[in-house]
């Protein structure tokens, strides 16, 4: 019975994906989108990948990460340097760049994993912030990344014309993270979030799974970085600063920590909204600030419990009716 339910869910998800793709692709290739909206399609996908992967460490592992942009930058520079130097056809060099960018970022995930083994909570958050800043200043100081000047003239392998490919990558990322969360490894990760002492006591090697969560999240952040570089065409170390990490965190918080669906929806809203409110770039940060504070206070207030209780009641009656 349970298997059937899962299959039903899968079919529903695939249906949603197909419809979303059909609508967006129809608008795009039919020429109905303005230049502004066209240029937003890939950034939306990038933010979805970033948010879903950050959710793995912040939502499911329960450790605040303030250096996600650092992983992204490692992927972005790695990927850009590969395509700039390889000069092979797109179908060959871009996948290589994606995989290499992801792997390089996850290598940094392993390096961060070392202190992660010994820290948690506030301290861990600060260490991830510090790592992000270290990565930024290393990129700034190295010649291969062209220092503060950054890289330019990166081939646009991921601009709006290649939306289909980016869309597929995004869907693959979502499924990978979602499946991981629902696997034995994902359960171990969530158990660490809920109570790491109890997790250890039932035989979960806590260190291993903490590092695993960081490495997987870093891998996808790296991929998002590669796409970013090939979407914009230029890279600067300052793009991947602390503020970028917070921007991703805001998406995860707004969507609900531990909710993949929420991350996707919030990524779409928070990417498009500031662009629609043209000229409101100064308000963008204000919006982020208010989202963070309001969500946290709301989450721990009684209001949420009441709404949630009602919601559960509603769902319960619905299930009963169906049965």
């Amino acid at each position: 019975m349970k298997n059937k339910k899962i299959d039903k869910q899968l079919i529903k998800n695939i249906a949603i994906i197909v419809v979303v793709y059909a609508v967006v692709a129809g608008l795009l290739y039919g020429g109905f989108l303005t230049r502004q909206f066209r240029s937003l399609l890939v950034p939306v996908c990038i933010n979805v990948i970033l948010a879903v992967s950050l959710n793995l460490t912040t939502g499911f592992l329960g450790e605040l990460t303030l250096g996600h942009a650092g992983f992204m930058s490692v992927g972005a520079y790695t990927g850009a340097l590969i395509t700039m130097n390889l000069n092979l056809p797109l179908v060959v060099e871009f996948p290589i760049a994606l995989i290499a960018g992801g792997l390089m970022a996850s290598l940094f995930g392993v390096i961060i994993g070392v202190p992660v083994l010994r820290l948690h909570g506030d301290y861990l958050a600060i260490v991830t912030l510090a790592f992000g800043e270290i990565i930024k200043s290393l990129i700034n100081a190295m010649s291969v990344t062209n220092g503060a000047m950054g890289l330019s003239g990166i081939e646009l392998h991921a601009n709006y014309k290649h939306f289909t490919f980016v869309f597929i990558l995004t869907i693959l990322t979502i499924f990978a993270i979602k499946n991981m969360v629902n696997s034995r490894q994902g359960r171990a990760v969530c158990s660490i979030r809920d109570n790491y002492i109890a997790a250890e006591a039932v035989g979960i090697p806590v260190s291993k799974f903490k590092v695993m969560a960081f490495v997987v999240a870093a891998f996808f952040a790296g991929i998002a970085g590669v796409i970013y570089g090939h979407n914009v065409g230029t890279l600067k170390p300052t793009t991947f600063d602390y503020n970028k990490s917070i921007e991703i965190l805001v998406i995860v918080v707004l969507g609900g920590m531990g909710s993949i669906k929420g991350s996707i929806i919030a990524a779409v809203i928070l990417t498009i909204l500031p662009e629609v409110l043209r000229g409101a770039d100064e308000f963008r940060m204000l919006l982020y600030a208010i989202v963070l504070i309001a969500m946290m206070i709301f989450n721990s207030s009684q209001l949420k419990e009441r709404i949630l209780a009602n919601d559960i009641v509603a769902k319960f009656t619905k299930v009963k009716k169906e049965a």
Binding site: I246, L249, A289, L292, I293
Partner: peptide, 8 residues
């Protein structure tokens, strides 16, 4: 997270 929000 709230403190980060206040900072922003």
């Amino acid at each position: 997270i709230t403190a980060i929000g206040v900072s922003f």
